[in-house]
Design a protein around this nucleic acid. Structure first.
Lengths: 137, 137
DNA sequence: CTCTCAATAGACATCGATGTCTTTTGACGT
DNA sequence: ACGTCAAAAGACATCGATGTCTATTGAGAG
């Protein structure tokens, strides 16, 4: 898998929130069923999204989770960052401490191109790109 | 990290082999030092590359590892496949059993574009793209 | 105020990826 | 044939990601 499980769960959950009518919230239980994520684990993931300010939560009656911004304004990069799955630009794939264009490791050219690609993908994709029509009621 | 540790180790080791003079082999110990991969773990990774036919090994005196083909003919995709880190095109990020363009999940458009990008990267990069000059003697 | 609902918090469990060690096998030099 | 070198094999250990459970906290309804 390209991205780790937690990050994928975050994308799933956020996609499900984005598919909701604007302003509507959803309970963790219901969200878990729709996204096939284990309920208790999902609540942990959601917590990270809440802390990152991407999602709001309300306890008690009529509570649940909702996006804190319109889908178009939530990038995948933010979701990945909230789950520590974002690419780390400075990190050297060859095990060297630092690795920049001036003092590149053997893998630098190929590796940095991958990093940039994934980075560009994550910043260009937003929750507006999820296919809400693809969801069952 | 975008790719898992084992896959990165495989890229490192293969890059180090590619930087060798053609036909030359190298012992596991030496390879481990150059790539900063734990020796014993490296031997496991190398075993996978040998089984995949990407690397040859010789035991005993003067033994070691060497590429079984010219660097230009070894793609990153093969290295990833040998370490089970290649993207799985059919796999649905949304947790659905199957997920194709005809019956897409909400994440399908964004996810498949990532898969394709990484796939294209891995097939276009070869060991000829590693920067041999960047290596210390 | 009290009851119920639902998120929060955090302890605990599990599992696979990662890492270490020891023994075995094969190849070469003498 | 023997000894040494080095990969192969596989048992074992560790650790972090993942998953489960229980208790607590906060919010609304009555």
């Amino acid at each position: 898998m390209i991205l780790n499980q937690t990050a994928v769960y975050a994308l799933r959950a956020a996609a499900a929130l984005a598919a909701l009518p604007p302003g509507m919230s959803i309970r963790a239980q219901e969200l878990a069923e729709r996204t096939h994520v284990p309920v208790h684990y999902l609540s942990k993931v959601m917590r990270r999204l809440v802390l990152a300010g991407l999602v709001t939560s309300r306890k008690g009656h009529g509570g649940g989770f909702a996006l804190s911004r319109p889908p178009k304004q939530v990038t995948f990069a933010e979701l990945l960052a909230a789950t520590d799955a974002a690419p780390e630009p400075g990190k050297c794939a060859y095990g060297w401490g630092s690795c920049d264009p001036d003092d590149p490791c053997p893998l630098h050219p190929t590796w940095s191109s991958l990093q940039e690609m994934v980075g560009a993908w994550s910043t260009s994709c937003t929750l507006d790109d999820v296919d809400a029509d693809a969801l069952p009621p």
